[in-house]
């Protein structure tokens, strides 16, 4: 891959659905904007539009990605400015169309138009390995693969990494989402080592399971804006690592119960 000037195009993908691609896209967009970066987040999940909801911008949509490609509006008109960060924009997907409404070359030409003005273009990839996936990775300079610590998600991530390598986009970096420290300790969940042992790619972040995430997504205020949320901190750390900062990975913590409960387990020989 020859690096193009301007923004870095980062695609967030996973293979399997429901592992947290859209949540990750929204939070990395917010976290990078907090670091003062100029960011566009783009929803490539044509037909199953979600990113706008998670970012709290659903009611501002006038034009979408397909309108831009089919010439019904200017690119600028489809870019929705975030309420809090004036240099964070969303390009929403069309809800009434499907993946065939855009092509990989459309994605390349749109990102090329955006590159000179921004630092990051983050693309939210749809689940699956078909047309939508190919659209979403066509323009990518780098790819982040989101997975959960469970066998089926890791299997799909492995397939995705193989496809990325075949398209000269690989191997990408890994985000391990929804990690539960207590379950790993009990041997009920794959540990980060188990996952990287199979996927053998670089881990760029571990996001702990956090009950703040779902209400945050529902209310359109991603957890990256919540100073106390563990997941929010993890996403902000990933953004810093993307910017080249050395931030050590947070150890996988036992998230269940309070201090006393952990103390009693410590002495209970568990």
């Amino acid at each position: 891959m020859t690096a193009k000037a301007g923004a870095r195009v980062v695609t967030i993908t996973s293979g399997k659905g429901g592992v947290g691609k859209t949540t990750t896209t929204a939070n990395l967009g917010i976290a990078l904007a907090r670091l003062g970066k100029k960011v566009v987040v783009m929803d490539a999940d044509i037909g199953l539009r979600n990113l706008d909801i998670v970012m709290g911008l659903e009611n501002r949509i006038v034009y979408d990605l397909v309108d831009v490609i089919e010439g019904r509006c200017q690119l600028r008109q489809a870019m929705i400015k975030h309420k809090q960060f004036p240099e964070l924009y969303l390009i929403p997907a069309a809800q009434t169309r499907d993946k065939t409404a855009i092509s990989p070359s459309d994605m390349v030409s749109i990102t090329d138009k955006l590159r000179p003005e921004f630092d990051f273009i983050i693309i939210d990839c749809p689940a699956g390995i078909e047309r939508g996936f190919r659209n979403a990775i066509a323009a990518a300079d780098e790819v982040l693969i989101v997975t959960n610590p469970e066998v089926s998600a890791v299997r799909d991530a492995d397939r995705i990494i193989g496809l990325l390598e075949a398209n000269n986009k690989g191997p990408g970096k890994l985000i391990l989402n929804r990690m539960k420290g207590d379950m790993v300790k009990k041997g009920e969940m794959l540990s980060p080592d188990d996952v990287t042992d199979i996927l053998s790619i670089k881990l760029i972040g571990i996001v702990p399971e956090d009950e703040n995430v779902i209400p945050a997504s529902n209310s359109g205020v991603p957890v990256a804006l919540n100073e106390n949320s563990k997941a929010g901190i993890a996403f902000r750390n990933i953004a810093r690592r993307l910017c080249g900062e050395e931030v050590p990975l947070m150890p996988v913590q036992d998230t269940s119960g309070g201090f006393l409960q952990r103390l009693s387990r410590l002495f209970g020989g568990n």
Binding site: R155, D156, D158, R159, G162, L163, E165, I198, S200
Partner: peptide, 25 residues
Amino acid sequence: RRTLRSGRTVHSTGHVIVYGDVNPG
């Protein structure tokens, strides 16, 4: 000379040697 990830297949009328892992799938 690479890791075979999920979804990859190798067929041969002779032998197969993999210098790398053969992942599940």
